[in-house]
Design a protein around this nucleic acid. Structure first.
Lengths: 332, 332
DNA sequence: GTGAAAGCGCTAACAA
DNA sequence: TTGTTAGCGCTTTCAC
């Protein structure tokens, strides 16, 4: 593989000049420029990023930490992030919440990743790890808050609309399938509580199902949560699940209990992964603009790197009404 | 951030010695070794991979090309690959079939990726690109065949079992929703044809629905394919879809046509993504060991890199019978 | 057994 | 405007 020196020689210029035409970092006379470009083409020269990165002390490599890439939600976010990363000459690598934090940390530090997007609150990294990242000058974007920039879905308004919608349909006993811990400060959960209050509905503790350690938010935990909720005889007529996968599981549990959706229980998901519209019944859900989220994450990282500015942004969430919700009926 | 020179100084040895204790590349007396290790710990020294990679001419960085990471199928493969990559000090980056091949190619070459796993036949890279990869000594693992090592699911036996199973249930008109082009040499399709013949069933062209360019294998294309198949009045009583997503879409189309699954039409998917067991009815499908596939991919790359051996392996596929298939009934 | 020093390919002062 | 050169941090011969 040709190196910069080869190009310089072939073009009859210095290697610095080659650098300058490649990086557009200084004026080079049109004539030389042309000669250099010709040489590059001829030799099919490709700059060696490892060398460049060593010299510039940046890797042009970022990471995305996902809970479970098997959830289409994260997949779409990753796609959005990759899209703008690619446009800017960055690569994105995957990290899994279930992976080994120590190994990941070492990798991140040693490879000098330029930035990381934590899409999930389920973060394997300890505050010490985060500190190391900070010291290394890595741009951090967190779904929730505090460290570096923050970026996440703005659930509050959509959940407001949702509770109003359900309330208008006559629902007064609205459950919440959390998947997370009791003390969760998840915005979905806190918004749920707040909006219940706003619309004069009772936030009965029995209507709320927490997850169990290790916390999971899959169809399986949704199934388990609903199985836990139904026998409680709370008079529940509607539930909001932390995400669509959990909602799928909840629907299954409801059916297995001999009830139907939405006649007996209305079910609402969150995320709006593409499958929501193809299951039966189609799922009412809170639609997060996932690609947008991913794009924003990369943009924020880019800004943090280039302009040294940190940002706090929230992306919109919309209530999408489909077939899994309907009027409340009193069960005997 | 401390460098190797700092460590050397603190330990009172040369930087070469530090290298040797870190990489275990030469005998170093226990005494010095200990001093070096102490210094490393004390300075919290982390080797700079960019420098090391420059010197060793390998990036310890591999890629995985996926069709659509939003399909849990690919997500699980990526997870498997990442798992063994991490264990071996490699990072894996994502490439999307829909991405810009030119940009990707440049990236791959310039960053000196050590290997790439093409999980999908839908490959944006031209033979010229592939050639460049070859010349650069990049380990290539392809789902189908020919370039470098090959790795993919072994559909043939499972499809044999499937056709036998359906045939035993009285199905004689079995459709195929391909998503791909007419001339597809996809092993699922060719196995389907072969097994129809084996069990004495007719491979009516009208029972086969090709995809349309740009080929897609999502629930949407499954929906469209089934909508195309139903009006043909072929007497179809069972269909095999290229993957589970397409099967989901097919089920939706069947229902919208006023028919039911499996009473009127049996539906079979492929991949066994986790959602198959939580939709209604649970989907009969061909289960691919996805994590295994990902792990194998990384192992093959590692072997190709270290032992210069190439491999051709297929991972097992199992027929999983669930609720979406049942006895054939004569309609009309 | 250990260390000096010459790269790896590129960038970025600084000179010319 | 262009070229020289000293790094970037690590590996790896080759002397000692």
């Amino acid at each position: 593989m040709a190196t910069r020196a080869d190009v310089a020689q072939k073009a009859g210029v210095s290697s610095a000049t080659v650098s300058h035409v490649i990086n557009n970092t200084k004026y080079v006379s049109p004539e030389l420029k042309e000669r250099v470009e010709a040489a590059i083409k001829e030799l099919n020269y490709q700059p060696n990023m490892m060398a460049r990165n060593l010299a510039t002390r940046q890797s042009k490599h970022v990471g995305i930490l996902v809970n479970d890439i098997t959830n289409p939600y994260y997949g779409e976010i990753a796609q959005g992030m990759e899209e703008v990363a690619q446009k800017n000459g960055y690569m994105v690598s995957l990290f899994f919440a279930a992976g080994n934090a120590e190994d990941y940390c070492k990798n991140i530090l040693q490879r000098k990743l330029d930035g990381i997007f934590f899409t999930t609150t389920k973060n394997p990294f300890s505050p010490q790890h985060i500190n190391l990242f900070h010291e290394a000058g890595i741009a951090l974007v967190n779904a929730s808050a505090d460290l570096g920039s923050s970026l996440g879905p703005d659930y509050a308004m959509a959940i407001d609309s949702l509770i109003k919608y359900l309330s208008d349909l006559g629902h007064t006993r609205i459950g919440f399938l959390s998947g997370l811990s009791t003390i969760s400060q998840d915005l979905r959960f806190t918004s749920y509580l707040k909006m219940l209050e706003k619309y004069g509905l009772e936030a009965d503790r029995a209507l709320i199902v927490d997850g169990e350690f290790p916390y999971e938010t899959t169809h399986r935990s949704g199934y388990a949560a609903m199985q836990a909720l139904l026998p409680r005889e709370t008079g529940v007529t509607a539930v909001l699940a932390l995400n669509d996968l959990m909602a799928f599981g909840a629907i299954k549990a409801i059916r297995e209990a001999g009830l139907s959706v939405p006649q007996d229980v209305s079910v609402v998901g969150c995320d709006d992964i593409f499958l929501t519209e193809c299951i039966d019944p189609p799922l009412t859900t809170l639609c997060i603009r996932k690609k947008e989220l991913g794009r924003q994450a990369m943009n924020i990282i880019l800004n943090e790197l280039n302009e040294k500015t940190t940002a706090n942004v929230m992306v919109g969430v919309d209530l999408i009404i489909r077939g899994s919700t309907g009027p409340a009926v009193r069960r005997g």
